[in-house]
Amino acid sequence: MTLSVHNLSVRYGRKTVIDGLEFEARPGALLAIVGPNGSGKSTLIKAICGDLPYEGSIVFNGTEVADARPRDLAGVRGVLPQASTLAFPFHAIEVVRIGLSSGVGADHADRAHAAMARVGLTGYANRYYQELSGGEQQRVQLARVLAQVWEPVTADGPRWLMLDEPVSSLDIAHQLQIMTIARDFAQAGGGVVAVMHDLNLTGLFADHVLVMAEGQALATGRPVDVMTDVTLSRAYGCDLQVNTVPQSVTPFVLPHNARAAASKRV
């Protein structure tokens, strides 16, 4: 029941965005995908979720993603896209319910409310989605995804969360809240793949890290092994300095000579 990607290539027209990528993700762990803008993280998530044609193979839940039916995939994984839109003025709770409408857990009407509560949006059910703040909207979308794959493990096996920058517009408290939800999901036996820009949160929460650069895997492994000065500086093309939280192996990242860099601009 793993997610295994072999020799994956994805093109937009003639432009190759992912080029021969290999990696594997297991349920029970949180895999963070990091890398600079345009390195192909979202493209990778889209390919894994069956949105894009690809070459190579992506075997998810025992079947090749390209051959899977949307309905079957929806039963085993929820997807949070990097950006979400909504066409008509639905209430927040309706957005969550629409996520359940194709049959997956559709009989659990109260699950939508429970999911809203999980992301700290109790009392927001009947607010118009379009009138919520950016972070609140993002949490509604998260609630939608959580409601869809509510139990991390079912009789049919583990379920997955595919999250493209799940905390990008959240304040620090909500970042921790959402990342904790994701980690709990993984620790309960579910799979989590999360694209991250915040390296410190990645160090805190990820079990595995895939560092991408220009459509390829620059490194994969445990945060402590992968998040090094050399790898990260190379991936992002700037001087980064990785330290370790005292009395732990949790890495945290600072721009090298941050002060000097800032004062130079003045």
């Binding site: 949105d51 309905r71 929806a74 039963g75 896209p81 839109t85 909504l86 008509f88 997956v104 869809q148």
Partner: peptide, 13 residues
């Protein structure tokens, strides 16, 4: 209404 990609993700054809 949630966009074509999300519609597919929640299991719609």
């Amino acid at each position: 209404a949630l966009g074509e990609a999300t519609a597919a993700h929640i299991g719609l054809n």
